[in-house]
Simulated scan of single mutants.
Amino acid sequence: MNLEGKRVCITGGGGFVGSHLADRLVADSDVTVVDTFANGRREWVPDAAAIVDGDIREASVIGEAITAETDLVFHLAADKDPSRDEVGQFRENNALTESVVERCREVGVDSIAFTSSSVVYGEAPRPTPEDYAPLEPISIYGASKLGEESLLSVHAHSHDFTVWNFRFANIVGPRLQLGAVIPDFIRKLREDPSELEILGDGRQEKSYMHIDDCVDAMCHVVEHADAPVNTYNLGTRTTTSVRTIADIVADEMGIEPEYTFTGGDRGWVGDVPRMRLSVEKLAALGWEPDGSSDDAVRQATRELLEQDFETESD
């Protein structure tokens, strides 16, 4: 789908990824952002975008955001806390996606791009390709994303939708908020530059991708992949350990803290300690990540050090 001139709705468009996506699209597309702004900020939404303020599970809100004139929905709205170990998160996230697909069917919108996650794979062999099976998530968050992918698959195969699923690595950059490792380290070290507590043993090792590359890859996939269901990993070919992230943050802050560790091989219940996605399918479509995970972490750290995120909501 050529995005130029299209009418696009972004659910969760006031959040970290959604607002950057809106920034990218407004130059050439007619963008509507719908968000409660519980996990984002209204000022992040570009002036050229229309804003619908509210919960997409409410008929009046989703009815205003997605109309018969909408060409494509980027569905990003979700409870994104990967450490939340409650079944309620599964119900809430799936209810958000149900609301979107039901409204799309009602008004004849047949194109949805969905932000999923690498956590749908669980603890899979690395690098993990998109066709790896069985998918066995180990967190409620991963289960919710897999459930949403399944619902979208049904609509693609039974109701003539076109669906793009993006299985994200760890996306980093400006506007990333507390709860993610880089801003958490910055906050802790601002409070006490002499010591940094690291969850787990610090050996957790994952792929990190800068938000600019993430948005560029999302747009490329939507414009070049046209199967009923198009599932793509978005990440880099390299990984970075939590300890290395601590080193990068400390280096960029010009300090040398002592590290302490909470212990164990993961940071929380459901944490996948090691993750690296195969991006060969993405490369075959004509888009390849430019930098490494270390590059993404260092760039994001520099950007976040210039951002007063501590008083902002996640």
Rank of each mutant, 00 (worst) to 15 (best):
R243Y: 03
S292F: 03
F74Y: 12
E4S: 15
R266N: 12
S139V: 00
T115S: 15
I182W: 01
D226G: 13
T162Y: 09
V101S: 02
L285Q: 11
V61P: 00
E58V: 12
G202Y: 02
E98D: 14
H224V: 12
L196N: 01
W287V: 04
D71T: 07
N93P: 10
S194G: 11
T231K: 14
A217T: 06
A68L: 06
H75N: 14
I171V: 15
D294A: 05
E205H: 09
V61E: 11
N233D: 09
R103I: 00
V100E: 00
D30I: 02
V87P: 05
G264K: 00
V221N: 06
V107H: 04
G235T: 02
L285N: 10
S83Q: 11
L305R: 07
S278K: 11
V34C: 09
L135T: 05
G122E: 00
L152W: 03
D226F: 07
V45R: 04
L304T: 05
V154A: 13
D184A: 01
T240P: 05
P127G: 05
E191Y: 05
K80M: 08
T238S: 07
I140C: 14
D213N: 09
F114R: 06
R243G: 04
G63R: 09
R243M: 07
L151W: 02
T97M: 14
R237A: 13
N2P: 14
R243K: 12
W268I: 11
V26Y: 06
A68M: 09
M209W: 08
D308F: 05
R243E: 14
L282K: 06
L152M: 05
V8D: 04
G12N: 09
V52F: 06
G14M: 08
D192I: 01
